[in-house]
Structures are given as C-alpha cells and as structure tokens.
Design a protein around this nucleic acid. Structure first.
Length: 445
DNA sequence: TCCGCTCACACGTTTGAATGGC
DNA sequence: AGCCATTCAAACGTGTGAGCGG
C-alpha cells in the first residue's frame, strides 16, 4: 500500500499540464489521462470512499470521468474500465474505522465495462471529458446485465484501459495502456458504514438532494418520530462536524491532512505485515501497460515515459507484464456496456485531418467478443448470448488459487511481444497481483 | 445479539415525447 | 414544413429504515 506520505505528495503534485499536447506528442505515444473531479474524489478518499453495490446494480458516486490527450486524432480507440481488488482482505467497519476481517472471498466473475462510445477516434475522446457515469456495480454474481460484479466489504479501485483498435474485434491484438488513480479506490458495501461518507454523498450527489438538511425532504422527515429523527441526525453525523460550507473551504487547504486517513490507519499497518493471499512478490507486475501481441512496428510510437503522466499519482512503478501467450488467442473478453447505448449523442462528424469520421452505431459483436452489449433491458434484443458468469468454464475461486484450467499459463500477455514495460502511474504497496486480475477474464478469452 | 443484506419507500433528477409558437 | 422552447409524465437514481437470515 502506498504510504500516506507518498499519497500526499501525489495529491499535492504539480498541476496537470495542458490537455492539448504538442503536435508531436502523440507520435511519442504520450497518452495522458487525468481524472476529473479530483478534489471530490480526494475528499471521499480521505474519509474512506464507499460505493454501494446492489443486486440490480448501482452507479458509482463520484463517478469516473477522465480527460485524455496524446491520442492520435484519427486512430480509433476503445476505452475500458475494470475493477481491481486492492488487496486480499475482507473488511469490517468497527465503530470509526475499517479493520481487516479476514481473507477476501473468491473473486467474483471478472467484468470489464466498455465505454459505449467505443470504438471512437482519438479526436472524439480528446474533445471532451470521458464519463463512465453509467457504469454500475453489483453484488449479484449471476448478474446478466453486464454490470461489474464486486464483493461487499472488499476494497477495489477502477482501472482504465485505452486500446487502439479499429473495432472490438481487434482489441485483443492491440496494446493496452492502463491508468489508475489512487484516490478512486473504494470499499464496496451494501449499506454505508461511515456516516461521513453518507453525508458527503448526500451533499454532492444531486439525486440525493432530498436527503439534505436544507429544508427539503420535509415530508419524509415529518412522518418520522421526532425522537428517531434526532437519533438519526445525531448518529449519522457523529464525528463529522463539517457543514456544507466546509467542503469548499477544505479545497483551499493545501494537500491532504494525514488524520483524514484515519479510517484506514490500522488496516494499512496491518496489511503491511500481513501476507496477501495473492502473494506479495508479484506486486511489481502491476503495470501501467498491459501488452497484447501486436506487430512491433505498430507499437513503436506507443511507449512513453510515464514519469510525465499528469496522473495525480504519477510515480514510477515497475516492471513488465509477463505473460504466456497461450490463453489470449482463444478467449474473448467479457465486455459490458450500458443498455442504452449513447449512440444518439453528438458524434464526431465534423471535418478533420482524418477525413470523414463515421462513428459506428451499436455494433453486433456477439459471437466474436462474447460481450454482453447489454441490451438485456430491451426485449427482443436480448436474444443473443449473454455472458454467464457461472458457466462451467469459469468456476469461482479466482483468488484463492485458480485451477490450471481456469488460468492457463500465467498470463495472456507475453514478454515476447513487449518491447518495453511501462511503469504504472502509481504503485501500491500491496496491490492485487496483476496476473490474478487480467484485463479480461480468462473465461472470456 | 450482532452483522450484513434486501426491499419498499419517498423524494429529486433526468429524459424524452408531446405540444405550441414562430 | 421546419425549428425551437416549454411542459409534463415516466423512468431512473438516491439514501433510509425496517425486516430478515445466518
């Protein structure tokens, strides 16, 4: 786990460089990704972000929104997000802080969320921030809607992947550039544990406006027994003396206060001393870039110096993604996307140096990528295959030690094709083992 | 008894179809 | 006929709190 001090230095680092790179920036493969709403994310992170997971699926708040630069304007890219366990533990909320409550449960089926605009030209991704608003988290391991499946009381962080690929067919042959942001890590919960998080969510999430104190939601509260209301108000905000004005005020403070990490203090120390079920010796496999076989010439411009990354967590991590190539060839990713494909939103159609751009509408990759292009909510469209996480091809237990059939030779990535390893934009002390959390579930390739 | 999970609920936001004016 | 702005209802997203089960 990254130390608090390290984190602080990351948070208080220099402001990101301008998003518009120089004309030759992309020639150097200098793809950059910055997280939006970092102040908000940090505010949550300082307290210990929690994300509700429900059976039907719940959006994240704050939701993931990133800015991209350094892409080749006319080359097409696919954007993906998956969730990676922070460690191998299950947690419990004990009064005012999180504590380790044992080993993690077997990892649920690995899901990857495909941004609905994918694939789209680099100019499309760079012209405005890219939002993953509709990404949903669920604890339903039988989920058929393509939501990302997580375990409650476990910690995760989102991982963003940029793949240069003309279509989803060729994703598997392309180079992945992977980005993570330490402040986006969170604990998946079925009900909020830390009342400070509840209040933060209510204060910042417009959908929760009805629960704010400012005079709204009178009807609901009026129906409550005053004593209960008092009790709730007292307990809910216990220890959180910040009123609405506090947050903007805090933004003006420089850096991050160490004491705000208190929810994790004990746990952090514990984890440093405790062996992760996934093993600690592979932590340096947590690479920024996950490489998939591709012609060498194709890669030449894609590798870059990550020290320049504008990520708030930019630091030099380590190492190559090592992999066996045997598994990627026969598997396809389980890619999830939102049911309501945003194909109706304005697309990149204006003139550009790339010539006319036609962003594809929803495409039917069924049978090719085995993706749940989650039209599940639309009767009549669901006819095609929807990924079954519990098919015989994928038993549970990814974490506890996958069987050979489940995880054929170490990785689907091979050093044979990696011209160069690129460091991750940050390094946790005990991040989940990379090999255990491939971009795409092995069951899907 | 404790703890985690599910569900119904009330409330607010978002979305898109319908309508009317120009 | 076409465009734009407004209205309105349905769908959706949210946290709450009671109840259930291990």
């Amino acid at each position: 786990m990254q130390s608090i001090r390290d984190l602080k230095s990351n948070f208080s680092g220099p402001p990101p460089p301008p998003m518009a790179p120089g004309p030759d920036a992309y020639l150097q493969g200098n793809i950059r990704m910055t997280l939006e709403d970092t102040e908000l994310w940090k505010t949550f992170y300082e307290i210990g972000t929690e994300m509700i997971i429900t059976k039907p699926g719940r959006r994240m708040f704050p939701h993931c929104k990133v800015n991209l630069s350094g892409l080749i304007p006319c080359a097409k890219y696919v954007l993906l997000v998956d969730m990676v366990p922070e460690d191998g533990f299950r947690y419990k909320w004990n009064k005012k802080k999180w504590e380790v409550a044992g080993k993690a449960e077997p990892q649920p089926p690995c899901r990857t969320y495909l941004h609905p605009d994918s694939p789209a030209p680099g100019s499309h991704w760079m012209k405005q921030s890219v939002s993953f608003l509709k990404l949903k988290l669920t604890n339903n391991t039988l989920d058929q809607h393509g939501h990302i499946i997580l375990h409650s009381m476990h910690r995760y962080h989102p991982r963003f992947h940029i793949v240069q690929a003309d279509d989803l067919f060729s994703v598997r042959w392309s180079v992945f550039q992977t980005f993570t942001f330490p402040e986006t890590s969170f604990t998946a919960v079925t009900a909020y544990q830390n009342t400070k998080i509840t209040k933060l969510k209510i204060d910042h999430n417009p959908f929760a406006k009805g629960f704010r104190d400012e005079g709204t939601n009178k009807k609901r509260r009026a129906n409550k027994d005053p004593s209960c209301l008092e009790k709730r108000t007292k307990s809910s905000y216990d220890g959180f003396d910040g009123e609405d004005e506090e947050l903007p005020k805090r933004k003006e403070e420089d850096g991050v206060k160490e004491e705000r990490y208190s929810p994790w203090d004990a746990e952090r120390e514990h984890r440093v001393r405790t062996d992760s079920p996934v093993g600690a010796d592979t932590r340096d496999l947590y690479s920024t870039e996950q490489l998939v076989p591709t012609p060498a010439s194709y890669q030449s411009y894609r590798f870059h110096e990550y020290g320049k990354s504008p990520s708030p967590s930019s630091s030099i991590g380590s190492s190559n993604s090592r992999s066996g190539r045997s598994s990627f060839e026969s598997r396809v990713p389980d890619i999830a996307t939102v049911p309501d494909h945003d194909s109706s939103k304005p697309r990149e159609v204006g003139p550009s140096s790339c010539g006319p751009q036609h962003l594809p509408g929803p495409q039917d990759y069924t049978g090719v990528l085995n993706m749940s292009v989650a039209q599940a909510s639309k009767p009549g469209v669901i006819g095609h295959h929807i990924y079954n996480p519990y098919s015989t091809e994928q038993p549970l237990g990814q974490w506890g030690g996958p069987g050979p059939s489940q995880y054929p030779p170490p990785h689907h990535l091979t050093t044979d094709y990696t011209t160069q390893a690129v460091h991750h934009s940050y390094h946790h002390g005990n991040v989940a083992e990379w090999s255990q959390y491939p971009l795409f579930s092995y069951s899907c390739w």
